[in-house]
């Protein structure tokens, strides 16, 4: 019995650390969605670009971890703003599905453009965190796990503060609530949206670098699956809601770990999607979402 409890607790730890990775990606996802209601399928690929910039900075430029992280976040922020200006902005006022197709296009471009540029070969990150392992009564926690969980909580709080209490955050909320009205009230909508993309993409890059460090390997297609999972996490928590992304990510991570822990690892993704659908059916706007009936 003791061993079962131990296994269960270990799976909770595994799930928390996996979930914080999803949450980290989902934060940026949900922010971008919140403001322009666009499922930015390229988010996972921006994360990949961030991971590569970080890798390049640490291996070729021999930067230490923090400068590399900052560089990756800045590069991705610029990339995110560029993508928004070039690909999404012209489509802001036409049917939403066109922007979605554009997002798919951008995503393909980053994946396969990246493959051309850096080859599909797996790259390995140099070790950044110490290899310390804590054994707490049989439950094993890695140094990296703690970094991941702490980072995602800090970023979530930071983001929440930005959105709720700063001027730019207020502008973001205004644009998200009613773009036209925000414009009439003198808010620079374009700049606000660009700022959102910059922050969202910077967060993606942070997630990418952390993922690269944590899992040791990066490749040009690394963004697809985590991107999809993060999107699921964001919807699960209520898309557009920052604490929701965190809760959704952790919930998804825990679900996956527990399903795998029961020996159904191959059904893991199916169970995750099933839970998502059930949640949506019961509460169509996600766990934390406000239920608004769309009006004409």
């Amino acid at each position: 019995m003791g061993s079962v409890t131990l296994q269960f607790l270990q799976q909770i730890v595994n799930g928390l650390s996996l979930g914080s990775i999803y949450a980290l990606i989902a934060l940026g996802y949900t922010m971008v969605y919140g403001i322009i209601k666009l499922i930015n399928f390229a988010h996972g690929d921006i994360m990949m670009v961030g991971a590569y910039v970080g890798w390049f900075a640490t291996t070729t430029l021999h930067l230490s971890f923090l400068p590399a992280l900052v560089l990756a976040m800045m590069a991705s922020a610029i990339l995110g703003v560029l993508i928004e200006r070039i690909a999404y902005k012209p489509l802001r006022n036409v049917i939403r599905i066109a922007s979605l197709i554009t997002a798919i296009g951008v995503s393909l471009f980053l994946e396969y453009g990246g493959m051309l540029l850096v080859t599909p070969q797996v790259r390995t990150y140099p070790p950044v965190f110490p290899d310390t392992i804590y054994n707490i009564g049989g439950i094993i926690v890695k140094y990296g796990d703690i970094v991941m969980i702490v980072t995602s909580i800090i970023l979530m709080v930071l983001l929440h503060v930005i959105v709720q209490y700063t001027k730019i955050g207020k502008a973001m909320r205004a644009v998200s609530f009613d773009t036209e009205a925000a414009l009439l009230m003198g808010i620079n909508v374009n700049n606000t949206i660009s700022a959102t993309f910059a922050i969202g993409s910077g967060l993606a890059a942070a997630a990418g670098v952390l993922m690269g460090v944590y899992f040791n390997t990066i490749d040009p297609l690394m963004g697809i699956i985590p991107g999809l999972k993060a999107f699921v996490a964001a919807v699960l928590g209520g898309i557009g809601i920052i604490p929701g992304a965190m809760v959704g990510g952790v919930f998804l991570g825990l679900t996956e770990s527990l399903v795998s822990g029961l020996g159904w690892s191959t059904w893991r993704d199916a169970v995750a999607f099933l839970i998502l659908i059930l949640v949506l059916i019961v509460k169509p706007s996600g766990l934390f979402g406000k239920n608004i009936r769309e009006k004409v």
Partner: peptide, 21 residues
């Protein structure tokens, strides 16, 4: 006897926990 999915899995600890047990 456990399974993973190549190409999409990067975190194997949940299943490894089972194998360890």
């Amino acid at each position: 006897k456990e399974q993973y999915v190549a190409g999409s899995d990067k975190d194997f600890r949940a299943t490894l926990t089972r194998i360890k047990a």
